[in-house]
Deep mutational scan, measured.
Amino acid sequence: TYYTVKSGDTLNKIAAQYGVSVANLRSWSGISGDLIFVGQKLIVKKG
C-alpha cells in the first residue's frame, strides 16, 4: 500500500494510523531520518 504524505503529517501519525512502527515505516520506504515531504509516497505494509 502506498500512502501519500499530506501537509501536517508526521511519521508518528502515519505509523499510528496504520498500526505499524515508525522503524518499519522508515525501512519499507527507505527513509533514514524523520524528514518527510508533502507529496512523498511511503510504502505501508499492514500487519
Results as ranks from 00 to 15, higher is better:
residue 16 A to W: 10
residue 17 Q to Y: 13
residue 6 K to R: 11
residue 26 R to H: 05
residue 41 K to R: 14
residue 4 T to P: 02
residue 11 L to W: 07
residue 35 L to M: 13
residue 7 S to L: 14
residue 27 S to D: 14
residue 23 A to F: 07
residue 23 A to R: 09
residue 46 K to A: 14
residue 19 G to I: 04
residue 40 Q to H: 03
residue 34 D to V: 07
residue 3 Y to N: 00
residue 23 A to W: 07
residue 3 Y to W: 04
residue 47 G to P: 15
residue 20 V to Y: 03
residue 8 G to W: 04
residue 35 L to V: 14
residue 28 W to R: 03
residue 9 D to S: 01
residue 21 S to P: 07
residue 27 S to G: 09
residue 24 N to I: 12
residue 33 G to T: 10
residue 2 Y to K: 06
residue 18 Y to I: 09
residue 2 Y to E: 11
residue 24 N to L: 13
residue 43 I to E: 06
residue 30 G to C: 11
residue 28 W to A: 06
residue 32 S to E: 15
residue 37 F to V: 11
residue 36 I to P: 03
residue 37 F to L: 09
residue 14 I to D: 00
residue 10 T to P: 01
residue 20 V to I: 15
residue 8 G to R: 04
residue 31 I to A: 04
residue 28 W to P: 01
residue 45 K to Y: 15
residue 16 A to F: 10
residue 42 L to W: 02
residue 13 K to Q: 11
residue 13 K to S: 15
residue 23 A to K: 10
residue 39 G to D: 05
residue 21 S to Y: 04
residue 20 V to A: 05
residue 24 N to T: 13
residue 29 S to R: 02
residue 15 A to D: 00
residue 38 V to Q: 08
residue 30 G to W: 06
residue 40 Q to G: 03
residue 1 T to Y: 14
residue 29 S to I: 05
residue 13 K to Y: 09
residue 9 D to F: 02
residue 27 S to C: 14
residue 11 L to K: 00
residue 18 Y to K: 04
residue 19 G to W: 05
residue 27 S to L: 15
residue 21 S to E: 08
residue 33 G to R: 05
residue 38 V to Y: 05
residue 13 K to M: 12
residue 21 S to T: 14
residue 15 A to G: 06
residue 12 N to L: 15
residue 10 T to L: 04
residue 29 S to C: 06
residue 37 F to C: 14
residue 41 K to I: 15
residue 24 N to S: 11
residue 47 G to W: 12
residue 35 L to P: 08
residue 47 G to K: 11
residue 9 D to L: 02
residue 32 S to A: 11
residue 45 K to T: 11
residue 34 D to N: 11
residue 2 Y to S: 09
residue 24 N to E: 15
residue 5 V to Q: 01
residue 22 V to D: 04
residue 29 S to P: 02
residue 26 R to A: 09
residue 44 V to W: 04
residue 38 V to K: 07
residue 22 V to Q: 05
residue 10 T to W: 03
residue 31 I to S: 03
residue 47 G to Y: 12
residue 2 Y to M: 10
residue 44 V to G: 02
residue 39 G to K: 02
residue 11 L to H: 02
residue 4 T to C: 11
residue 33 G to Q: 08
residue 44 V to N: 02
residue 3 Y to I: 08
residue 7 S to N: 11
residue 45 K to S: 14
residue 6 K to M: 10
residue 23 A to S: 11
residue 9 D to Q: 01
residue 4 T to W: 12
residue 19 G to Q: 10
residue 1 T to R: 12
residue 39 G to F: 05
residue 31 I to V: 10
residue 33 G to V: 07
residue 28 W to M: 08
residue 5 V to I: 06
residue 41 K to D: 06
residue 38 V to N: 06
residue 6 K to G: 07
residue 27 S to P: 01
residue 12 N to S: 15
residue 37 F to G: 06
residue 2 Y to W: 12
residue 43 I to F: 11
residue 7 S to K: 13
residue 19 G to M: 08
residue 14 I to G: 00
residue 10 T to Q: 05
residue 43 I to G: 03
residue 36 I to M: 05
residue 12 N to E: 15
residue 23 A to E: 15
residue 26 R to I: 13
residue 36 I to C: 05
residue 16 A to V: 11
residue 30 G to V: 06
residue 29 S to G: 07
residue 3 Y to A: 03
residue 13 K to G: 13
residue 9 D to W: 02
residue 39 G to H: 04
residue 15 A to H: 01
residue 19 G to R: 09
residue 39 G to R: 03
residue 35 L to Y: 14
residue 41 K to V: 15
residue 43 I to Q: 10
residue 44 V to I: 15
residue 11 L to V: 06
residue 43 I to P: 05
residue 25 L to Q: 00
residue 3 Y to Q: 01
residue 35 L to C: 12
residue 13 K to W: 10
residue 13 K to L: 11
residue 10 T to C: 06
residue 8 G to N: 06
residue 37 F to Q: 10
residue 3 Y to E: 01
residue 38 V to H: 06
residue 22 V to R: 04
residue 24 N to F: 08
residue 8 G to D: 07
residue 21 S to A: 07
residue 1 T to A: 11
residue 10 T to S: 09
residue 33 G to W: 06
residue 1 T to N: 12
residue 29 S to A: 08
residue 34 D to C: 10
residue 20 V to T: 09
residue 19 G to T: 05
residue 35 L to F: 13
residue 27 S to H: 14
residue 9 D to G: 01
residue 34 D to W: 10
residue 46 K to S: 13
residue 2 Y to D: 06
residue 11 L to F: 06
residue 29 S to W: 05
residue 13 K to F: 10
residue 4 T to H: 08
residue 34 D to A: 08
residue 35 L to K: 13
residue 26 R to F: 05
residue 23 A to C: 12
residue 15 A to Y: 02
residue 37 F to E: 10
residue 12 N to G: 14
residue 6 K to Y: 04
residue 37 F to T: 11
residue 39 G to W: 05
residue 10 T to R: 03
residue 46 K to C: 14
residue 13 K to P: 00
residue 11 L to Y: 04
residue 40 Q to C: 06
residue 3 Y to T: 03
residue 47 G to N: 13
residue 40 Q to L: 08
residue 17 Q to C: 13
residue 42 L to N: 00
residue 36 I to Y: 03
residue 45 K to R: 14
residue 20 V to R: 01
residue 22 V to A: 08
residue 9 D to P: 00
residue 42 L to P: 01
residue 27 S to R: 13
residue 43 I to M: 12
residue 6 K to N: 07
residue 4 T to Q: 08
residue 11 L to D: 00
residue 13 K to D: 12
residue 44 V to H: 02
residue 30 G to N: 12
residue 16 A to H: 11
residue 38 V to S: 07
residue 23 A to P: 08
residue 41 K to L: 14
residue 22 V to T: 08
residue 16 A to S: 11
residue 17 Q to S: 10
residue 9 D to N: 02
residue 46 K to R: 12
residue 20 V to P: 00
residue 16 A to T: 11
residue 15 A to S: 08
residue 2 Y to N: 07
residue 44 V to E: 01
residue 31 I to D: 02
residue 45 K to G: 12
residue 14 I to S: 00
residue 21 S to G: 05
residue 6 K to L: 09
residue 28 W to Q: 04
residue 18 Y to Q: 07
residue 22 V to C: 08
residue 40 Q to K: 03
residue 38 V to L: 08
residue 36 I to E: 02
residue 42 L to F: 03
residue 21 S to I: 05
residue 22 V to P: 08
residue 8 G to Y: 05
residue 35 L to Q: 14
residue 12 N to K: 14
residue 30 G to S: 09
residue 21 S to F: 04
residue 38 V to I: 11
residue 38 V to R: 06
residue 25 L to H: 00
residue 33 G to L: 08
residue 27 S to F: 12
residue 22 V to H: 03
residue 31 I to L: 14
residue 41 K to Q: 14
residue 4 T to G: 03
residue 12 N to T: 15
residue 47 G to A: 13
residue 23 A to D: 15
residue 26 R to M: 13
residue 26 R to P: 01
residue 42 L to T: 01
residue 41 K to P: 05
residue 10 T to H: 04
residue 8 G to I: 03
residue 13 K to I: 10
residue 20 V to K: 01
residue 5 V to E: 01
residue 44 V to F: 06
residue 26 R to G: 04
residue 22 V to G: 03
residue 10 T to V: 04
residue 16 A to G: 09
residue 5 V to N: 01
residue 40 Q to S: 05
residue 11 L to A: 02
residue 43 I to N: 07
residue 2 Y to R: 07
residue 12 N to A: 15
residue 34 D to I: 07
residue 37 F to K: 09
residue 46 K to I: 15
residue 23 A to Q: 12
residue 40 Q to F: 06
residue 32 S to F: 11
residue 14 I to F: 01
residue 19 G to C: 10
residue 17 Q to P: 00
residue 40 Q to V: 05
